[in-house]
């Protein structure tokens, strides 16, 4: 049950700029994902979470580190050898408007990966495509329509059908519900949960929304400026988060049930620093209300708090959380 499907070791993705500077988009992240688990990565824009997703898909080349899927190290493969493995990991993008070819009929869009990878399916590809449509709640006869003839939610179902077509074991979801209205978001989240269970899929789920992540993920990593600052099984993280940045995200998340007014919230000031020249010590120190000289000077080690809960903060476990639910 705890067989590791995906293993990421010290992944770095750096982008050189024309000026000679380097953007440290992802700066050393390590995690394992068990088969059948859903690993969430939360963070704000610019934290590098989407770059992790794209590196897993080999849409960006890792600068350093290893990515292993099952027994295959995919970070060092290229060309035909990478293509031969592609069917085992697929991606669902945020925007179903721009991630589907407007000139391909829906059925062709779902069938395309099968044709490109030369995958043969028992019963024939055409029949399989109709099956994929049914699996995501689309009418099998809608294979003849073009993407613009679908609503936003249906289009995201179509993207999911295409990701499922090659029968992957890993699906990387990059903000798959962020562009959708709340009612449609609920439909798509429930669909993702159902197909994950039914097909025993493994997800890496990228999102900025803590409530969505809690709903679907089994383990969560919080990312800030290219690094994981905290990581824990979902229940553990939301029950006993220890990093001030995680607290600030939790405090800023709005829920309809809880009308805490803005003035009473724990809020942090400012915005993340530039990933071109990240701070030497703790990268969050400049915005952290608890920061000391040590934080500015020394990079905090990732410390293990047991049960898979790791935190990169000099004072983790010593600070009192500014959220009463966590302090209890």
């Amino acid at each position: 049950m705890t067989e590791t499907l995906l293993s990421v070791e010290d992944l770095k993705v750096h982008f050189p700029l024309a000026s000679g500077d380097v953007v440290h988009a992802v700066d050393g992240v390590t995690f394992d994902v068990a088969r059948g688990a859903c690993f969430g990565i939360v963070g704000e824009s610019g934290s590098g979470k989407s770059t992790v997703a794209r590196a897993l898909m080999r849409l960006e080349d890792p600068t350093e580190g290893r990515i292993t899927l099952g027994t295959d190290e995919i970070s060092s493969l290229s060309g035909d050898r990478l293509r031969a493995l592609r069917h085992r990991f697929q991606m669902i993008f945020q925007d179903p408007y721009s991630s589907l070819n407007p000139r391909l009929r829906a059925g062709q869009a779902v069938r395309e990966p099968l044709d490109l990878m030369g995958l043969d399916i028992k019963g024939g590809r055409e029949q399989w495509v109709r099956q994929c449509f049914a699996d995501v709640g689309l009418h099998p006869d809608s294979t003849r329509l073009f993407p613009h003839q679908f609503s936003g939610g249906q289009r995201q179902r179509l993207s999911i059908a295409r990701a499922l077509a090659t029968q992957p074991s890993l699906i990387v979801c990059d903000e798959p519900v962020s562009a959708l209205d709340v009612a449609i978001q609920a439909q798509i989240l429930n669909l993702l949960r159902r197909i994950q269970r039914e097909k025993f899929l493994t997800f890496v789920f990228i999102s900025h929304d803590l409530a969505v992540v809690q709903n679907i993920c089994t383990e969560v990593a919080v990312m800030y400026l290219g690094e994981f600052v905290e990581r824990a099984p979902t229940g553990q993280l939301y029950a006993a988060a220890k990093h001030p940045y995680t607290w600030s995200l939790m405090a800023a998340a709005l829920t309809p049930e809880n009308s805490r007014r803005a003035g009473e919230r724990f809020t942090i000031t400012g915005e993340p620093p530039s990933p071109i020249d990240p701070p030497k010590g703790c990268r969050f120190a400049g915005r952290c209300p608890f920061a000391t000289d040590t934080c500015v000077a020394e990079k905090p080690a990732i410390r293990d708090f047991g049960g898979g809960h790791t935190v990169a903060c000099h004072y983790a476990g010593e600070l009192t959380p500014p959220l009463e639910e966590l302090a209890a």
Binding site: Q187, A239, P256
Partner: peptide, 28 residues
């Protein structure tokens, strides 16, 4: 709209069994 909005649960409530599936409004 209320039942299909995921709500974050913190503290002890987060350790209860995994969150139920969200409510849905059928159609568009």
């Amino acid at each position: 709209l209320m039942v299909c909005t995921p709500t974050m649960r913190l503290g002890a409530a987060a350790l209860a069994e995994s969150p139920p599936a969200l409510g849905e409004i059928a159609g568009i």
